[in-house]
Every structure is written in structure tokens, then in C-alpha cells.
Design a binder for these strands. Structure first.
Length: 439
RNA sequence: GUGGUCGUAGCUCAGCUGGUAGAGCACCUGGUUGUGGUCCAGGAGGUCGCGGGUUCAAGCCCCGUCGGUCACCCCA
């Protein structure tokens, strides 16, 4: 059989890269739990009609089909989930009677989308999602809280600085309807393309597709140009002279988010009135996050407020949430070498072997180290010591223990070798486990 | 799904107007009779993505196909 080729869009990491991914996920998990989010896992599949509720994305859904299924029957109604928000909305409805509201949960799982892969775009990838849902009413302060949790979660990871662009759907829709544009959803989608196609093209689209007058299109562009790190955007919007109750509401909510973020996570959030998000179920604040220096990746963390996604007709459960695209964030940094692990195995100590008869003693020494939490393995063979050291070196294992009448431990980076008491020896804290480094 | 572009050693790549397949790094052995990394000497490793065609002769030209990659669409 010829050597299998990688399947594009389904990234598989090497062990040292996986160490980075694993530690990032552990870090996110700790951060989310520090903020009181409970964990939930949902099944990989959903009913197709659940998945299709989100509209356009439907054609990207991987449908489940049993190989032997009769052409007419089978599991035709199932598909793999393409995000964690839709399954969560379903989960909330299904378990509403057993959950306590407001309910905050985090969920870190793989999702699948049948897209054409590109840098930072995959067909199977990890998302780390947080959401807060309440029954009937969701206070606006949760829209303020979400960016602060993300700021905490990303803090402490050796990543380039991130910048979260925040907008509010009510603000834009209020502005458009105050202006006299009817199809505000379509206007949002067009404005979202501004960075890609430029102002002239956007103006033309607005005129052609939502029947805006040139003056209305001009005003939409003026609004989209506004961005600020503080609440000064409010006055700039008001200076455009459009009045609408929904616009006022959106301005107030966005100002609250920006103000709290400027206070508690300076430099993280910028109000950016051209952010729209393609998805149509967002009803308030929307978030989009770029890695500085890696803007071409697109948003590595997006979300927003949705008031009607989870509703059984009798009760509604409005929510706000955001998803970190773990794979989008990490895979490009890993393959470019911008992120790496200090070693490719968990092993901290390799116990050397003078001869095969010594394996029993070596195993016992290894066990004593493991009992105190030091990851240890025994050399695969009693090769020349030079080879055993090389075995450790190639994997990045920092220490080699030589058993003998007096055991000795060697730090193979410095070459320093000293007698050691295996029941009290501790490696430096930074060597006990592999760490993430940004070379 | 549409369009561009690229497939040669584990990796990065060279390969002239078509004439028997190359380098660097990595790997293995020895120099080094039990402590690696440097150095030196040697060695191994290729159905040139796959299939067909043109030709005395194809890595190179033609057709097809598969895969990678980029852009569009959309999005984490």
C-alpha cells in the first residue's frame, strides 16, 4: 500500500504539537471554570431539521448515511453538528426542566463543515464555546461579561495580542430603519463585506439590492466607518443625525460593553460599527476577534447575543455566547513554528540501562519517581550510554538517571551530572511537564 | 461547487533545447572498548502523485485523473 497522504481539512497534529493544543485546551477549561461555567458535551449528530434552522450554513452539513442503508430509509435525518451553539440550544430546550437559570456552560468539542479548506479553515476542527442563557429575559450585563471571560481565558497563553471588534445589531438595524431602509438584514450582510470589496462596491450593492438611495447608502458607509476604543463612537453616530428607538438601545448596550472592557481589559475591545456577522439569528451584541499580525486568518473567536434561537413556542431562552476557533488559532501558529512545546513527550526522566539484567532495578527506580509525580520511562535497550542519552535528547527529555551503587542524574542540556537521592530529587518546576513556548 | 497554480528522497528544493535521478538537512554505521551534541569517513533511502499517449528515448511534451495549495462563496 502506498504511503497514505494527509486529508486536507482534517488536521492531525504531531505529538509535540498536540501537547501545545492539549495545554491550550486545559488552560481554557481552567479559565472558564474560574468564571463558573459548567461543562457539557453533546452528541456529534443532530437531527437535520435542527441543523437547518440556521439557514445558509445548511449546505455545509455532513449528512450521516449508513453504508448498507436502503436507499429510501436509514438514518437520513441525521447530520454532524457544524457548531456548538445550535446543539446547545437544542440541549437547553430538551433539559430545560433540569437546568437552573441563568445557566452558563462551556463546551469544547470538534465540529464539522463541508467547506473547501484554506489556511485556518478546516472541515473538522475544535471549538471552545461559552454561553449564558436565561429564561424569558437575559440581562444585558452578560453581553459585557463575555469579552471579559475571553480576555481572561486568552491571557497567559503565549499568543500574539488579540483585538475583539464589537458591534450591536440593534444599533445598525435601528440606524437603517431610521434612515428608511426596509431590508435591514440584507443591508447588514452587504456592510459585512466592506473590508473585502471596498466602499464603492458596497455602495453599489446597497443601491441595487436593498433599493437604497445614494444618500442612504452614503449614510450606511459613514456609520460603518466609525470605530473607537472608548465610548466616543456614540457622539459620532449621533452626529449623523439619524434617530430611532432601536438605535438608541443599541448605542447604550454597545457603550456598556466598550466601557467595561476598557476598564477591565484595556486594549482588548474596539467598537467597530461595520462588524455584522453573516448569521441571521444574532439580535444584539456581536463579537469578532482577530490575532494581530494574522489578520488573514479571519476571526478566531466570534459570537453574539441570540434572543430566539432556543424557543419551544411556550418558553424562550435568550442567550449570549462566543466560540474560540481552537484549530484556526493554533494550527497556523504550529505549522509556522510560532508555537512549540519544550519537548515531544511527557517524560521528564529517562532511566538508563547498563545491561538488560538491570531492567528490574530500573523499573523500580522509575516507579519511585512516578509515585512523586515525575513522568519517567526506562530506556528501551541497554545500548551504549551515548545512544541512550541521544534517545532522550531527540525527544527533549531533560534528565537521564544512571542507576548504580550511587545513582547519578544528568541534565543533558548542561551536561551537569550529580549524585542523586531518587526519593527526594525534584526537577526544576519548569521541567516537570512540557511547556508551550513561542520561539 | 467554480477558477488559478503546484505534485521529484523523511523535510526543503535543483534537474539545461527530451538522452540511464541530484544537493542540503535529517537518518544509519564507524572513528569513539559504555556519557550524546562538534568534526571526519562511509552507508542507506526514489513505482519522479497515478493512468494513458507522442518518441529510438519522457522527471521534462500531450490528454486524463487524484491530491496539495490559493482565490471566490461562507465562516471558527
Amino acid at each position: 500500500m502506498p504511503r497514505p497522504q494527509p486529508l486536507s481539512g482534517f488536521p492531525e497534529l504531531l505529538p509535540r504539537q498536540r501537547i501545545v493544543e492539549q495545554q491550550v485546551v486545559d488552560h481554557l477549561r481552567r479559565a472558564f471554570e474560574l468564571h463558573g461555567f459548567a461543562n457539557v458535551q453533546t452528541r456529534a449528530v443532530e437531527q437535520m431539521d435542527q441543523l437547518l434552522r440556521k439557514g445558509e450554513t445548511s449546505k455545509e452539513v455532513y449528512v450521516l448515511r449508513r453504508l448498507q442503508a436502503d436507499s429510501g430509509g436509514g438514518d437520513a435525518g441525521l447530520g454532524l453538528h457544524f457548531d456548538l451553539t445550535v446543539p446547545f440550544a437544542r440541549y437547553v430546550l430538551e433539559n430545560a426542566g433540569k437546568l437552573n437559570f441563568p445557566f452558563r456552560r462551556y463546551q469544547i468539542q470538534q465540529v464539522w463543515r463541508g467547506e473547501r479548506p484554506q489556511e485556518g479553515r478546516f472541515r473538522e476542527f475544535w471549538q471552545a464555546d461559552i454561553d449564558i442563557v436565561d429564561r424569558d429575559e437575559l440581562p444585558a450585563h452578560y453581553e459585557v461579561e463575555i469579552p471579559l471571560v475571553i480576555a481572561d481565558a486568552l491571557r497567559g497563553l503565549p499568543l500574539p495580542p488579540v483585538r475583539m471588534h464589537v458591534n450591536n445589531r440593534k444599533l445598525c438595524q435601528g440606524f437603517y430603519q431610521g434612515l428608511g431602509i426596509d431590508d435591514t438584514d440584507e443591508a447588514l450582510r452587504i456592510i459585512d463585506k466592506l473590508d473585502k470589496v471596498g466602499p464603492e462596491a458596497v455602495q453599489k450593492l446597497l443601491i441595487d439590492q436593498v433599493e437604497a438611495t445614494p444618500e442612504q447608502a452614503e449614510a450606511c458607509l459613514k456609520l460603518a466607518e466609525i470605530s473607537s476604543e472608548d465610548t466616543s463612537f456614540v457622539d459620532r453616530v449621533k452626529a449623523l443625525g439619524v434617530t430611532d428607538p432601536l438605535l438608541e438601545e443599541g448605542l447604550g448596550e454597545l457603550a456598556a460593553v466598550v466601557e467595561a472592557a476598557a476598564d477591565q481589559a484595556p486594549g482588548l475591545v474596539v467598537a467597530d460599527l461595520k462588524i455584522a456577522r453573516g448569521l441571521d439569528y444574532y439580535t444584539g451584541t456581536v463579537y469578532e476577534t482577530v490575532l494581530e499580525g494574522h489578520e488573514q486568518l479571519g476571526s478566531i473567536c466570534s459570537g453574539g447575543r441570540y434572543d430566539t434561537l432556543a424557543s419551544d413556542g411556550k418558553n424562550t431562552y435568550p442567550g449570549v455566547g462566543i466560540s474560540i476557533g481552537v484549530s484556526r488559532l493554533l494550527v497556523p501558529l504550529l505549522s509556522s513554528g510560532a508555537l512549540d512545546a519544550t519537548r515531544e513527550v511527557p517524560t521528564c526522566v529517562l532511566v538508563a540501562l547498563a545491561d538488560e539484567d538491570g531492567r528490574g532495578e530500573a523499573n523500580a527506580l522509575a516507579r519511585r519517581l512516578r509515585e512523586r509525580g515525575v513522568p519517567t520511562q526506562v530506556s528501551p535497550s541497554a545500548a551504549k550510554f551515548g545512544k541512550q542519552i541521544k534517545f532522550a535528547d531527540k525527544r527533549g527529555i531533560p534528565f537521564v538517571l544512571f542507576p548504580g551503587e550511587e545513582h547519578q542524574i544528568k541534565d543533558i542540556r548542561s551536561g551537569e551530572q550529580t549524585p542523586v537521592d531518587v526519593d527526594s530529587w525534584e526537577p526544576p518546576a519548569e521541567d516537570l511537564h512540557p511547556r508551550i513556548v513561542a520561539p
